[in-house]
Nucleic acid binder design. Sequence first.
RNA 1: GCCGGUGUGAUGGAAUUGGUAGACGUGACGGACUCAAAAUCCGUUGGGCUAAUCCCCCGUGUGGGUUCGAGUCCCACCACCGGCACCA
Length: 811
Amino acid sequence: MKYDFASIEPKWQKRWEEAKVYAAQDHSDKPKFYGLIEFPYPSGQGLHVGHPRPYTAMDIVARKKRMDGYNVLFPMGFDAFGLPTENYAIKNHIHPAVVTRQNIAHFTEQLKKIGYSFDWDRVVDTTDPSYYKWTQWIFLQLYKKGLAYKATMPVNWCTSCKCVLANEEVVEGVCERCGSPVIRKEKSQWMLKITEYAQRLIDDLDGLDFIERVKVQQKNWIGRSTGAEVTFKATTGEDIIVFTTRPDTLFGATYMVLSPEHELVKNWLESGKLANADEVKAYQKAAASKSDMERTELNKEKTGVKLDGVRGVNPVSGREIPIFISDYVLSTYGTGAIMAVPAHDDRDWEFAKKFGCEIIEVVSGGEDVQKAAFTAKDDTGILCNSDFLNGLTVKDAIPAITKWLEEKGIGVHKVNYKLRDWVFSRQRYWGEPIPMVWCDKCGWQPLPEDQLPLLLPEVESYEPTDDGESPLSKMTDWVSTTCPCCGGHARRETDTMPQWAGSSWYFLRYMDPHNPNAIASKEALEYWSPVDWYNGGMEHTTLHLLYSRFWHKFLYDIGVVPTKEPYAKRTSHGMILGEGGEKMSKSRGNVVNPDDIIKAYGADTLRLYIMFIGDFEQAATWSDNAVKGCKRFLDKVWNLSESCTDSLDYTKENEAGIHKCVKKVADDIEAMKFNTAIAAMMTLVGDFQKNGCSKGDMKALITMLSPFAPHIAEELWENLGFAAQSNTMVCQQPWPEYDESKTVASTVTIAIQVAGKLRGTVEVPAGSGNEVIEAAAKEVPTVAKFLNGLEIVKVIHVPGKLVNFIGKPKA
RNA sequence: GCCGGUGUGAUGGAAUUGGUAGACGUGACGGACUCAAAAUCCGUUGGGCUAAUCCCCCGUGUGGGUUCGAGUCCCACCACCGGCACCA
């Protein structure tokens, strides 16, 4: 009989589903394992080969854990709100909900064809009102704790999506999703105070088993820096508070710079303090109209305007210094104002050169500060021209001056973060409505919880508008409501939540997906938390992964979830590139559709290849040819099952190899080295072909293979009679036993080196003593040749591996 | 500029963490089977030297170093990839 994957695969998919073999148990004496992969956005194009890489990896892990006796939760769902669906709906005049339903059905069908062991009874869909009810509920809790607030500020505006973006969604000045330019727009937005959690988001990384680059990237993004806030006086009497990481250089502050949007500038303009008001206003206007792209452009020459009529006073030297406004000082970081120390900061130096400001060296040890700034922060710098700080190292001067400033009441130690609050409103239709109501009398009021979910209304047109109003604002019937506080006339918030809302807590819903009374029951949360292993893409490190950690910490604080962190372990997979090593894309025409591979070779071959393709964490290049190698391997396994002997014992020649393979594959799965696990099984199959094999040998092989290629494994399990015998499927089997003593061969090959160079090998009985090995080694002709004329001064033995003779020429 | 990663045959990638570099797969070449092809099976496949699949020499981005021994550790550099970037 031939290996007929096309009939085998649907057969077992059906049987698994009917027997619900992959359903997670809510109550169990077994230890629990919660394995999670990032749920997909169900796009119209369906799955591409990038999806199965993480899914197959976690599926193998989940299957292995079941074989190890765990109660496994391995769920799947759909992150279905979002712009592509909305845009597709607009173009094709179909309601986004209908499009979403179709896409989810298509994805589900495709995923089932690959044979994943998902618990299909726990599917979540973020667009389902019974789901987003709880997304809205979490928002209300955030609001009640003061962590959601409405603020008017310049925000990122995508010119193509016609929608605001979070900082995390802007990549190099363009929209992360569509690549269109992002401009700054003053808008009133719902914000989430993620900054309140900045320190905890850094600190709690320490206890987590996350791959290092994820931790590093999150820390960089949060961007903690320590320094001091120092109060300067303006000659007009106001305080100007600046943030600096180098309070030690305070004596070298020769001018100040405020961001163009700084409050004091407005005040001075309004009160007529500035002689060059027109010039200042013109600069403000120019800065405001710049896009993010222009503002962050590299090597851009510094611009700015000196304020005429107001000066600052250096609080330590008492000197009057000029004040500038410039867009190199950001209004959104620190206090929006800096003291400029051109001698010891590159940016200040550049600005000072252009505007002719004084450069005073206050840290010696570098080159001439008139030629370049000396920025070293280590012990190489010694303070000078700094009164009582003179002679101190930078490291010592920072705490000294900070203490002094605090005593004098003109400065405080201060920590700042680059992380900004999360801009949470979107001016689009296909998202969760924000459950807030505006009353002219009572202000913003949260919708009472018993009115959740606040359903997304049916609308005629969901087109975004140029003026930045949500499509929902046109639904006057829906918008118009009563105030929950005073009962008077009120208006609903018409913006919706960003895509990241639903995905910030979905892993909790899997624990108890149908609960109408809570995001999940206390018992379910206690039992399943935390996620034991979460695999996902690096692209979500400073988006979804950070946001969901923030939400989880908040839910922990209000007593909803039992753990501080949602995910105990985080791993990440590399991308699958098209043939030729380029990113797969429709325009390049190098997209591989998993359906085609399944049709031609079967799902098991697809699974095997996608895991064999290379190092799981690195990018890998797709190769149609290499797929065939995996198919050939499965063909060999199939043929062996038809030629094996009836014995249920391991064949003597294969026994050691099987035991080694059992250990190797188990270890490799845990370490996500699926490629070498498969290679080990390929080698074992080669041995079976050479030595012949028994049913018992095949039983071990099939069991090990089953997490990787589950369909063929079930079929062979049945064909060889194991199913009838045990009345189980192979996926319910325990992992084969490993006995180290069985792997010890009777002889070992010892490498022989002379002066560290390989000169031959020798076969000796296992456990031979050093003398025996040395004697045997010296007999080897190629070795003897090199030892001839040498006096051996030292012999190094590596047990079971190697012997190395060190000699010197005989006198 | 700062942070992180990677660099090994024609090719995707292995190497038990300092101990026989190139496992396993692909491709290529040779052979068996076949009228023939496909499929399958067997063999060869880093470079040099050679009659030789004997032996020897060279070989893991480059240059140094530590070590009996380095793809692996240290120092300096080069190239590519990713993240952050006027964050005071």
